[in-house]
Design a protein around this nucleic acid. Structure first.
Lengths: 229, 229
DNA sequence: TGTACATCAGTGAACGCGCGTTCACTGATGTAC
DNA sequence: TGTACATCAGTGAACGCGCGTTCACTGATGTAC
């Protein structure tokens, strides 16, 4: 085995197992036996399980954020109209995911699923690491969205961004299961790119819905209340 | 201690701890020590930790689904216009959550958080149990949504419902954290009812966005691609 | 009213298991003199 | 060219821990005769 081929074998195995089962549900013993390396090698090379999780993210997020920066640069360098639309911004996100260098054909699907899990599973250390490491590109994304939705109040924009992240993270993190259900029920096959393409108009319409004029008092909700018994 | 007061004490403690920390991250020792009962009491009364998780859901979902059924009945019994709008259907969901009998003032927030976790954490047994137990009300909800969005293809409606569930489950399951961040950054306090009120126009606009006419081939995405370097 | 037995809620202690991590060690390769 | 030492990737076995579950038991209450 060539020198520190071991590190890559561990990362490959961990990436796939994490995407399939989540972080807490994947043990180091599963990872090392799939990778064909010694159990102690994870702690030798990475220091801890948490550090391994962070390394798995760094390996695909760093090229992704570079691709995305370039995509934003290109979009902003266009002659003519200055401000990007919500669709263009979201399109750059999915476009970069598709266009970035892939290790294999499952790459995008694993990438999406891991991003969903990062938001969805309780891994405080990972959230802190990602916030620290990818702060710049995240701020750029938020700034572009702000320009694209000048009609929204800051509070409404904040919540709608959370709604977008939620819809995306949730759908992508359970995309295999959801695709399976649809396949069984209707026979329709769906690619991960297709889901992304369907997400964009949904998110974009939600993002640009009329602003909430009047915040209801805690007791009175926005529901159309009939004369309840 | 009055007879089988123990059962309620366990359910109360488990409900709060699950909502705060998730299922796998909450041990039976935490639950029983918070409840002030013996460790073995959970297995004595419920049989297993999984059965306890299901009981926690049954205790609040059964009154909720009864309230929601009544709300749908009222809406459908209205004279005049026949078909419910997306806003009315979603309003009935949040309205029932607000109006159903609450055990305490944290009730709604715990309820939302648990629903989010149910979708978000990998608990196969729980998903199976909920699908089996609340099949009827779920089908009714899906049927109403279908009537409200006749312009959508079945496949598009399927994916958009997943997007809605995702946005809701994700936001609600991390609502405490998200409210905290907003409070720190802008000083704005947000109630859980307010988040629900903000969700409705977002989801409703997304649900009614123009249908996806042309599904792009895997290689060509919906992103506005500039002449990339 | 008294006795024998059954039922049932609840208990204290232990069981076996899988986990992440650690430790002493090996053997190959590089470096200094 | 040879020797002594250092560095480093990798290993096998064990450690301590917290987990869900089980087991033999207690003591209160109900029931039959």
């Amino acid at each position: 085995m060539a020198q520190s081929d071991t590190v890559d074998r561990i990362l490959d195995a961990a990436e796939e197992l994490f995407a399939d089962r989540g972080f807490a549900e994947t043990s180091l013993r599963m990872i090392t036996s799939k990778a064909g390396v010694n159990l102690a090698a994870v702690n030798y090379h990475f220091g801890s399980k948490n550090a391994l999780i962070q390394s798995v993210f760094a390996r695909f997020l760093t090229p992704y954020s570079a691709t995305l920066e370039a995509e934003f640069d290109d979009l902003e360098a266009r002659p003519g109209d200055r401000v990007l639309t919500v669709e263009e911004i979201l399109g750059a996100l999915t476009g970069s995911a598709v266009r970035m260098p892939q290790r294999n054909e499952r790459g995008i699907s694993i990438f999406m699923r891991l991003l969903g899990l990062a938001y969805t599973q309780s891994q405080e250390h990972l959230r802190e690491y990602l916030e620290e490491e990818y702060r710049d590109i995240f701020h750029r994304f938020m700034g572009l969205l702000k320009q694209a939705t000048p009609q929204l109040s800051a509070v409404d924009r904040y919540w709608r961004i959370q709604f977008m992240l939620g819809a995306t993270a949730f759908t992508m993190s359970s995309s295999d299961a959801l695709r399976g259900i649809l396949q069984t029920k209707t026979g329709v096959e769906t690619s991960i790119q297709e889901i992304a393409a369907r997400l964009i108009p949904f998110l974009s319409a939600g993002m640009q819905a009329p602003d909430l004029m009047m915040v209801p008092r805690p007791e009175a909700t926005a529901s159309g209340q009939p004369a309840a018994g």
